[in-house]
Computed example of a mutant assay.
Amino acid sequence: MIEPGKRVRGSRTGRPIMVLLDLLGQRWTLRVLWELRDGPVSFRALRAKCDDVSPTLLNARLKQLREGGIVELGDEGFRLSSQGAALAGHLNGLNRWAKGWAQGNSQPGD
């Protein structure tokens, strides 16, 4: 289980930022979060949005994200928890920065 305070790759201390970066750095984690940003999605639809990632891998990522309190499973499918929605807000900021960077005109703090 991934949670702040526990050791992860690259951190013996389990600092929250290191635990988060370890989780986000795992294959497909960011993509799953990105695809859930607009609301609940069934497993099948989420898998399709993620370019038909293997169901085993998708299940593993969803399990980790659920254990971390970032994703929930409701009647309508998988969705971001309140913590996950807050994280998605930060990812939107990174997306804006990345678009500027790609255009060659981003400045520190954009």
Results as ranks from 00 to 15, higher is better:
66 R>I: 13
33 L>D: 02
49 K>W: 02
49 K>V: 00
60 A>T: 02
15 R>D: 12
6 K>M: 04
101 W>N: 09
63 K>F: 11
76 E>S: 14
16 P>F: 09
67 E>K: 14
29 T>M: 11
62 L>S: 05
81 S>M: 08
92 N>K: 13
12 R>N: 02
17 I>F: 07
66 R>G: 13
35 E>D: 05
37 R>C: 01
61 R>D: 03
18 M>N: 13
51 D>T: 05
82 S>R: 13
26 Q>G: 04
83 Q>L: 14
13 T>V: 10
99 K>V: 12
88 A>K: 13
94 L>I: 12
47 R>L: 10
71 V>E: 02
101 W>D: 04
62 L>Q: 12
106 S>N: 03
22 D>G: 12
62 L>I: 08
39 G>R: 05
19 V>G: 03
26 Q>K: 14
1 M>E: 05
19 V>A: 15
5 G>I: 06
11 S>D: 15
80 L>I: 03
40 P>L: 01
72 E>S: 08
73 L>H: 11
18 M>P: 00
59 N>M: 07
26 Q>P: 00
1 M>K: 07
18 M>D: 12
69 G>A: 11
4 P>H: 04
55 P>H: 06
93 G>R: 13
87 L>R: 06
77 G>L: 05
107 Q>V: 08
104 G>A: 04
46 L>D: 10
12 R>H: 03
10 G>E: 03
108 P>Y: 10
35 E>W: 03
110 D>F: 10
22 D>K: 02
53 V>F: 00
84 G>P: 06
59 N>H: 09
95 N>I: 10
38 D>V: 02
88 A>Q: 09
108 P>K: 07
97 W>L: 15
9 R>H: 01
33 L>G: 01
58 L>N: 04
12 R>L: 14
30 L>R: 13
1 M>V: 10
110 D>M: 05
84 G>K: 07
17 I>T: 13
92 N>I: 06
58 L>R: 02
102 A>L: 12
23 L>E: 06
8 V>R: 01
24 L>R: 10
110 D>H: 10
105 N>D: 12
61 R>W: 04
